[in-house]
Amino acid sequence: MAKIKGAIVVDIEKCKGCEVCVISCPTHVISMTKDVNGKGYHYAYMENPDSCTGCTNCAIVCPDGVISVYKIKVDA
């Protein structure tokens, strides 16, 4: 059985920490860092990377277009 694994890359310096991606992720992958970026925003990161399915929901709702999504099909 094939399984989908995903991952996201956040453009940290452009993230404004709005958290819209956090609630849009169906598998609760994303959280905000305790650190801040150069503009003083907490930024999005994968807290639970194993749960990412690469569905792109976070990326398409991101108002600043800072999320890139990668996806791979792995055989079980």
Binding site: G54, A59, G65, I67, S68, V69, Y70, K71, I72
Partner: peptide
């Protein structure tokens, strides 16, 4: 090769 979405 695994990129499925990035900013246009």
């Amino acid at each position: 090769e695994n990129l499925v979405y990035s900013k246009t």
